[in-house]
Deep mutational scan, measured.
Amino acid sequence: GTEIELESKNGQREHYTATSEDEARKIIEKAVRRGIKRIELRGASEQLIRDMQEIAKQIGLQYRTDGSL
């Protein structure tokens, strides 16, 4: 699965493990709508990382991946 670590603007951290790319995408989209400061992805697919970079650029988000592409 993909591990997703979120940090909201007030510094609250949340951790999710998505079993599918679809689920990961839903978690990320929800977080973005809620207003999130930072997202870290571990074990994400190349496609998901590309999507994440696109989203991050659009809304000026900090993100990090573990680089295991």
Rank of each mutant, 00 (worst) to 15 (best):
E54M: 09
R33W: 03
S8F: 14
G35C: 10
T65W: 04
D51G: 04
Y16I: 11
E29N: 07
I49E: 07
I28P: 00
G35Q: 05
T17K: 10
S45H: 02
L48Y: 01
T65K: 06
R42G: 05
T65R: 02
E7I: 10
R13V: 13
E14G: 03
I28T: 01
Q62N: 05
L69M: 10
H15N: 11
Q58N: 08
S45K: 01
I36Y: 05
I36K: 01
V32Q: 02
H15E: 05
L69Y: 11
R50N: 08
G11S: 03
E29M: 10
G43H: 10
G1D: 10
D22Y: 07
I4S: 01
I4V: 05
M52N: 00
D51M: 14
I49C: 11
H15F: 13
K57L: 14
D51C: 11
S20H: 06
I39G: 00
R38V: 07
A18S: 09
G43L: 02
S45V: 03
G11T: 03
A31N: 04
M52L: 14
I59C: 15
L41W: 01
Q62H: 15
I36C: 08
N10V: 06
S20G: 06
R33S: 10
H15C: 13
T17I: 12
S68G: 10
Q53V: 13
N10C: 14
R38W: 15
Q12I: 10
S45D: 04
I59S: 15
A24N: 00
G35H: 06
Y16N: 01
K37C: 14
I39N: 00
S68R: 04
D66M: 02
A24R: 00
T19P: 06
L6K: 01
R50H: 09
S68E: 12
Y63S: 15
Y63L: 15
E40G: 07
E23Y: 04
E5A: 10
I55M: 10
L61Q: 02
K26H: 09
Y63N: 15
T65A: 11
I4N: 01
N10A: 10
G67R: 02
Q12C: 14
I39C: 03
L61F: 06
M52T: 09
T19E: 11
R33Y: 06
L41M: 09
D66G: 04
H15L: 15
E21N: 07
L41C: 04
I28M: 06
R50S: 11
I27W: 07
